[in-house]
Design a protein around this nucleic acid. Sequence first.
DNA 1: AGCCTTTGACCAGCG
DNA 2: TCGCTGGTCAAAGGC
Length: 548
Amino acid sequence: GSCDSHFSIISPRFHAEMDGHTHLAMEWKDQSPGPDCSMLPSFLTDPFPADPLVEDCDGGNDGSEGGGFERHGLSVAVGSPQEEGKPVTPHFGQRSSSSSSLSERMQARAGFSVAKLSMPGSEYSGAQSPYLTIPPGLSPASLLESPVFLSNAMGQSSPTTGKLLMLGDTNNNNNARLEPPSVEDGPRAFSFKALDLKSSQYTAEGKKGSLPNSQHPSAPSRDVPVKTETNIQTTTQGANPLGHLNQAQLNNGQDLMKRSYHDCNNKRNRLAADSATAGGDNNASPTPPATAVDSEAAKGDYPAAVATAAPAEDGYSWRKYGQKQVKHSEYPRSYYKCTHPSCQVKKKVERSHEGHVTEIIYKGTHNHPRPAAQSRRPAGGAQVHPFNDAQMDAPADNNNNGYGNAGGSQPNAEARSLWHAGVAVQDWRGDGLEATSPPSVPGELCDSSASMQVHDGAARFESPEGGVDVTSAVSDEVDGDDRVAHGSMSQGQGAADTTEGDELESKRRLHNLISARPHHICSFHQERKMCVLILGGRMFQEAGVVRH
DNA sequence: AGCCTTTGACCAGCG
DNA sequence: TCGCTGGTCAAAGGC
């Protein structure tokens, strides 16, 4: 209960909103509007902040640690280009106080238009820029270049780390898509790059031609008219215009956040010395293949990344033991248990009608190595969905031993008992075989995953898979338990990241985390102690106190 | 035969 | 105590 009550994971969904526009809404349950501007809102509203924006980003430093995003209601709406007459222009209403719309400001500063972000209570501006485009002079990679994007030498191969070989990827333009998520060096803030929720396209439904999650038939208007010709066709998906469209939408939102955050970071962070190495790998990390970017992106800077991508497995075996329609959720929730005899890990998965995973929550950490790939259950029993959870959260980690804790240490029992708010993970492997995207992050340094774990009001990121956990602990209160629970913590990271060294380490961990699953994380703000995650085409926000 | 999913029922927590 | 809700159990059936 603490998890839900303390900070809730909201599963923003594409949905038509008041104005009838389709939005990728990122709702933030927040109760009390904080006086301080939250980073997310700020960077979302102004992806390319001028100095003032920087202030916004740093605004959290004022010591209002507790503030966090949770205090700010916020929604990110990704306009649906499809609505031609009414391109969605998401924007943050909070920021909308300024006369100019977000997109307008972005255009002015960045030279390209972006979808608007909308925040609760904000007015929808008339400005409309359905497509997120990058001007010729501005490459996505450059946008993402951030000190914090360290090359993840230790990181496992993954699309984002650049270690992942992309077979069949002939598209030179991938760089734009491969750009690693930029992490804020800023002492406290960092962002995760949202990754293409490509996987959503690979659902069986996709094969069937059913609309992707975001494009639920009920909301046809959501379809984004994006040109996907340039996109690399995935083996599983074939050509699914709809799927691409969905991707496009997601990308828009992700790009927006990513860019905005990046901008903020650039101005803010100069500290991440350790992350200096970053940039290099950026190219290597392809975002999920087809993240079919908006038409613009697809055409230009964001070509389809992976020629052949497929749903990935997390490497663990799961047995579904229940399914229930939860009240707050639009989609049914499935309950899974790890099939390993001594493993108590469970996970809850919400899946859209199309089979897209909209939310994954892990509970516990695997105390056993990841089963051999070949040993994995092919599909013996009836598979609920091609995008079975296991597939969805496949781990990107190649280097890990399969244990939840880095270094092979056993996960803390207490910690394991906690539910993790998982992030839908979707990795795309260039091999064209099965793309796995585990929630786990490669990281020797960190034990955290994209998932956020909440315990007694404390939230932290943890790798549900237990495999490679990079840690970014998020918690209101830090207790020893948390540290123990996470590999990162075990590494002495548990102490508050007040020192520079800690920050560096934190950055490194973050980098690992991001590298491992950039697609999951749209943004993260340490100062604000919250994360924005994108899962299955949906954004999730999680708030808590960040610990490293 | 083994493993899995499905699904209604049961249980526990909470207001 | 009751009702609601979420989580789990377990029989039935499928692959």
